[in-house]
Amino acid sequence: MSNETPKEVALLIKRCPNPQATAYWEEFKVPYYPKMNVVSALMEIQKNPINARGESATPVAWDCNCLEEVCGACTMLINGRVRQACSTLVDMLSQPIRLAPLSKFSLVRDLVVDRQVMFTNLRKVKAWIEIDGTYDMGPGPNISQKVQEQAYELSKCMTCGSCLEVCPNVNSKSKFIGPAAIAQVELMNSHPIGAQQKEARLQALMGEGGIAECGNAQNCVKACPKNIPLTRSIARLNRATTVQGLKNWLNR
């Protein structure tokens, strides 16, 4: 392998210095290495910020952190589709590789966007378990393997924003909180202690921007890099909110 003359990788990057500026595309060429990922290509640009025309370029801003697809930071549009730059190998892509920032979040610079809204959404749906305190209360509840296995799937959500990016009902016109936060409600509601605040979370989901804004395009479940069964969570909570809605109406 090492005897081969290294090929080049061409990248076309959507540049934008700040949210007010107009975006433009800039091409870069970096050396190719076997099994290299998009992050490695971006790192090459850091070390040599010269564009394809040989001009010195302002260094490209992009997010990354864990580089092993558990932190969610490096999510971006790669050849038009949402992916993590760390787990996307150059070999799988047609060139020039087009990199653009996520389109459903506010831009910071170049490929960096602000995803705070996702954390705000988690707050809206009360995605936490209300324990009495951190003092010693003895062992926690007994939980079956089956319940744990289902909950584990949901607990892998790294708030990367892929599901929001692909959801046609998440956009600047709508208030939809998106699938990620909804699945977290199911996770919290499936825990024996968390279930005690089940109603409060369902009520939150029935509010503005909540679960009813889902239009069943089901892109989320296809795009989720962690294979979280998002549409199953949504459907289960559809049922739970239906029941809750009837209760709200009939039990008064």
Partner: peptide, 24 residues
């Protein structure tokens, strides 16, 4: 109103359900 609220994306995401969502 719901049609207005939607931003369709069948070109990059050509999944079956996404197409049906759009066709709806």
């Amino acid at each position: 109103w719901l049609v207005y609220l939607t931003k369709n994306n069948v070109l990059p995401y050509t999944y079956f359900r996404n197409w049906l969502f759009y066709l709806q």
